[in-house]
Each structure stands twice: as structure tokens, then as C-alpha cells.
Nucleic acid binder design. Structure first.
Lengths: 338, 338
DNA sequence: TTGAAAGCGCTAACAC
DNA sequence: GTGTTAGCGCTTTCAA
């Protein structure tokens, strides 16, 4: 039925050892002649090595596991592309899973990855499994991505959210906006939105605004009354002339809300989005955004991970901060703001 | 170092067999007392079974491999979600790869999946590896997704592209459009866009249009002059009053082109998009589209696949056609078209 | 330069 | 009910 290394060896008239050596490029101990014979046998039998057996014996699978939290957000498709490309370039395969921000699922998945003997893990953590993160990081090469986990020592690759938000709000200020609100999905376990709100505040304070100027709407991610909340928020803060959106899903709802209210962008309210997307420039008006280097984030995370694995060294405990970028279009008024 | 089944057995004072049985829910041959002892030992040692060893022995890995062709298109994120959910529900893990429509990559990936002993494969084929598809389908449970491959007998799950296009064009006709063009990414190996163009023609012929009415622009996917081609096309066919876009990436470019030309949607040119996306309803004007059930496509494909695997039966050779749906918004004129 | 043999961690006859 | 034992397909030490 299945052709194994033994079959190849028999056909080529050599031992399994020799086949194994040739398969693994261990040419130093092998004659050109036998090499040729073995390769011919492999081709004729269309032999495919069994990675399970190899992995079992060598304690190496060449697969990386990635735990994602939200496949719906196109940002993750970009990250995933970077991850996949990097895996491919390094000769690794990729296993993925989607926690959907659920603690139990995340736990289940991490354990499954360990069971499956993945060589390394890339994780966008829900933030809800600190003890498990700790034991994982210490037992298997792991890089944390996109979110900082307090009290966890781990190799981490994130974007500079504080900086990105600062860039965004400064742009709004340069465009003479005086009453800038911020809207975020609230999630107690996650650092990104908090960092972005911090950047928002930094920019305001720097320009001499006082605490009263801070106007923040925190939304429940799972709520289905996002639109209404935003509308109410805008009505209750009638002096708002700009909104800093911390998330690309929220941005769409904000635009919807502003349209529903019959207000004009940017004349009545300027809006700046977090996360550049493929559709940003086709919105009306074209959306000014902060671009995060998602592809790069995925690629760097995996490259660092695999280097460590291949070189059998531990991942250093530091944070790589990728820099976000302001993309100016028309949703904040003048194009010459910066 | 690593704790194995032997360690658990020793700690619980039983044999590996007993541990194995309990681990696999084979309770019939086991006493409540020993069961308790074993489970305690497992927990105390934080034992994780080695899936490689299990898989090697039992010739079953509980992993599904998915080969995608384009992570950039958000449609695939949706499909992937369905695939991932279904895998999780059935207790399988998921490996993914991205061919980027490249023949060589696809070949490499399929072979890697076989090497890794995946239990089944879900594939959106590039269409360029027919012999390999045939041998794959016959040697490992496989379901083809989204594209029909001529001359390949395989369990296939697709959306009814002809029907979707027909729905789209009929909607345009009901809205009194007389000169309807279609724009597609041309790809000789792929069925989807051809089926959609067929539906486009069907709708026109049905209403008595003649061959001269068929106005099609075929674009190169990899080209970076998409926008200019569209603009030229519209200029050269000045009487066009509606465009049927067969792809969500093209749709954005069409909108850009129309804006650049200073024309109005839908007054000058109506436009209908293929593939509903999260942003469709936020475009200006909100985009009328054909929605494909991507999540369902992924879920059904995996459910059928895993049922066959679990029940050890062959996948039947038939096509499941999912029905697309017209979503009426404002880019084709009146809301009451249908 | 090549091969024999042990063993990776698990499962499943078969025996008790 | 529980244990003994023989592999699954590969890698690798050691000997020839």
C-alpha cells in the first residue's frame, strides 16, 4: 500500500540508513553511484517520507502553530500572509487556529499545538491565560504578536500603538480640530486600544489641552448596538469636530453613524481611522488612516522564531516595535495638514 | 524531560495499555478505581500525549490541510473562518498554505501535506496541476472548493456563479439599463469568472439582446495598470450605462475609475459588485452586490470531508452548489428594482 | 562508504 | 480488567 523507506532501500539494493542519509542531503558518506540508484528508486516508487515517523524520531516537525484571535478583521489576513510567506521560505508548514477571543478555546488550542509537537508558536493572545502563557513560553519557542502581556517575559513583536495614535491626533490638531473624541472597543485583557488611547491623550496634553478635553467612548466588542451608541455619543457631545477611531471595524460604523445624523465628513466631523485597509481609499471621502505594518509583523515574528529554533537558541526577551505610518487622504480636511 | 505515557503508567502503577485506553475513552475495560488513579497521575505530571507517536501508530493525525490561492481577498478569510470552525467542532486541527496561484507552490504544498500525513485536504485549486489533483483525490480524502476543475472527478463545493451573475445582470436590466458591460480578471485555469460571464450573457440573451450587446473587459490579474485599462474601456464604450463587476477587487478599481472620469454612480453608470464584503455598504453610494456564502462553503466542505474520513467511506463525486444572493443597495439606481 | 540494530511514544492484538 | 509485546517509519550510533 503505502511505500516506505524500506521499499526504497530494497529496490535500490541498499539499507534504510543510506536512503535516509541521501534524503537528508547527507552526501558526505555516500557514493555518486548509490546516490543515483536511490534517487531513481525514490522517483519510480513516488516515495513520500512520513513526517510523523521522522518527527517522532528526531523531535522536530517543521511546523509552526499560529493562534489568531479574530479572522474577521482584515488586518489579520495581512499578518497571516506574512506568517505564511516566512514559513514557506524557511521550509516550515503552518497550523492555525482562531480563538475568537475566548479563553477556553485558546487554552485548548495551545495544548493541541503542544500535543501536535509544533516546533514553535506565534500567538496573538487573548490575554486571559497568563499562567498558560508562562508555561508555554518556557517550554516551547514562542513569539507574542500585536499585544503586550503584562508580567510575561516573551519575545514580542508589536506595532507602536501609542505612537500611531499620537500621529493620528496630531494630524487632527494640525487641521485645527478643537474637540477631538476617541472611540474604542473596550477589552480589559488587551493592550492595543489602551495604548492608542494613551497616544490620543499624549497628543492632546502636549498641546495644552486639559483633562476635560478627553472624550472617549468605549464600546463592547460583541454588542450589536454599536451604531446606536455612537449616534448617542455624538449627540451628547455636540461640540465634537473630529473622531479618532481606534479600530477599522469601528471606523465603518462611525461613518455610518455620521451619515445617519446627516453630518458631513470632514466639514462637520473629521475622522481618522486606525488600520489602513484595501477599501480605505475608496470610501467617501477617502479615509485618512494609520497604517500598521501587518505583513511585516507576521514575517518578522516568524523569522525570529524560526531562527531561534534552527539555531537552537532561546528567544530573547525583548519587544520589537514596528512603526505605524500616517496616510493622509481627505477625511480630516486639508490634504496639507502634516 | 518530556513526560511520556510510560511515566504516567509508572506513577499510577499500571501499564501503558491502561493509560492509553483511558486516554482514548475506552472505559469499558477499566475499573473506576484505576481510572481515577491514572487521571490523577496525568494531571499531576501535566502529561500531554505525543500526537506524532499516536499518528504514526494509528495512521490518523486529525489534521486537515487547506490550500488557498489568495489570502488577500477577504472572501477567503470568510471561507477560512468556516473551515476553521468546522475543524474545531469536529476535533481536527488545520494546516493552511497559500499558493498565490502559482503552480509550483501548489505542487510543493500538496506534497508537503501528504508527507505530513494530513487526514484530508480542502483545496481551492489553481487549476494548473491536473495530474497531481487526480492522484491526490485518489489517494487521500479531498474536497475541491470554489472552482470546478474540468476532467477531475472530485467532491466539490462551489457557489453557483452563473446564477449569481444572472441575478446581478437581471437586476441591472430591471433598472432599465441598456448597455451593460462586464469586467473580469482573466485566468485561463479558473472557472469562476467564466461562469459569471456566462450568467451575464444568459441574462442579456434572455431579454432579446444580440451578441453585439456583449461588452466584456478581461483584465490581467497581476497587471498594475488595471485602473487605466478600465478608464480606457469606459471611454471606448461611451454608451455604457452599467457595469457588472465579477470580483470585489475589481469593483474598487471600477469605482475609482468612474470617479476619476467625473461620472456619477448610478446616474451615469450603475455598478454591481460580485462578493459582498464588510465595506460594501459603506461605499458611496452603498454598493449593490451578489453575496456568496463563503463561511458556509468552508464549513460544508470540511463537514463533508470529515464525515467521510470518520466513517471511512469515500467522498462521493458530486458538486454541491451554494446559492448566491442579490443584495440591493443604491449603486444601481432605484431600490425597488427587484 | 555502508549497514545492523536500537528506539522515538504510542496502539492494539493477544494472553492471562 | 489488565499487562505483554510487537510494531508504526524513521534516524542515528556504532561497528564493519
Amino acid at each position: 500500500m503505502k511505500v516506505t523507506m524500506g521499499d526504497v532501500a530494497r529496490k535500490a539494493g541498499v539499507s534504510k540508513t543510506t536512503v535516509s542519509r541521501i534524503l537528508n542531503g547527507n552526501y558526505s558518506h555516500t557514493t555518486y553511484e548509490t546516490r543515483k540508484r536511490v534517487i531513481k528508486a525514490i522517483e519510480e516508487l513516488d516515495y513520500r517520507p512520513n513526517a510523523l515517523a521522522k518527527g517522532l524520531k528526531s523531535a522536530k516537525t517543521n511546523v509552526i502553530g499560529m493562534v489568531l484571535s479574530n479572522l474577521k478583521n482584515p488586518f489579520w489576513a495581512t499578518v497571516l500572509e506574512g506568517v505564511e510567506d516566512a514559513c514557506h521560505n524557511k521550509g516550515y508548514n503552518l497550523m492555525i487556529c482562531n480563538t475568537n477571543e475566548e479563553k477556553e478555546k485558546e487554552e485548548e488550542y495551545i495544548k493541541a499545538f503542544q500535543t501536535k509537537q509544533v516546533d514553535g508558536i506565534v500567538i496573538n493572545p487573548t490575554g486571559q491565560n497568563l499562567p498558560l502563557y508562562k508555561s508555554t513560553v518556557s517550554s516551547i519557542p514562542t513569539v507574542v504578536i500585536n499585544r503586550r502581556i503584562p508580567d510575561l517575559s516573551a519575545h514580542t513583536v508589536i506595532a507602536d500603538n501609542e505612537k500611531g495614535a499620537y500621529l493620528a491626533v496630531r494630524h487632527l490638531l494640525k487641521n485645527s480640530r478643537k474637540n477631538i473624541a476617541a472611540i474604542a472597543f473596550q477589552n480589559p485583557y488587551v493592550s492595543t486600544w489602551k495604548d492608542r488611547l494613551k497616544g490620543y491623550q499624549n497628543a492632546l496634553y502636549e498641546k495644552g489641552f486639559l483633562e476635560e478635553a478627553i472624550t472617549i467612548l468605549e464600546l463592547e466588542q460583541k454588542s450589536d448596538s454599536v451604531r446606536e451608541s455612537i449616534i448617542r455619543f455624538i449627540k451628547n457631545n455636540a461640540n465634537i469636530d473630529a473622531i479618532f477611531s481606534t479600530n477599522n471595524m469601528i471606523t465603518l460604523e462611525i461613518i455610518g453613524a455620521i451619515n445617519e445624523l446627516g453630518l458631513a465628513i470632514p466639514e462637520d466631523i473629521a475622522i481618522i481611522g486606525y488600520d489602513e485597509t484595501i477599501w480605505s481609499k475608496y470610501l467617501n471621502p477617502p479615509l485618512t488612516t494609520i497604517r500598521q505594518p501587518g505583513y511585516l509583523m507576521g514575517r518578522i515574528a516568524v523569522e525570529n522564531l524560526i531562527s531561534a529554533i534552527d539555531e537552537k537558541r532561546k528567544l530573547e526577551n525583548y519587544i520589537t516595535m514596528l512603526v505605524p505610518e500616517l496616510i493622509i487622504r481627505e477625511s480630516c480636511g486639508t490634504k496639507t495638514g502634516l
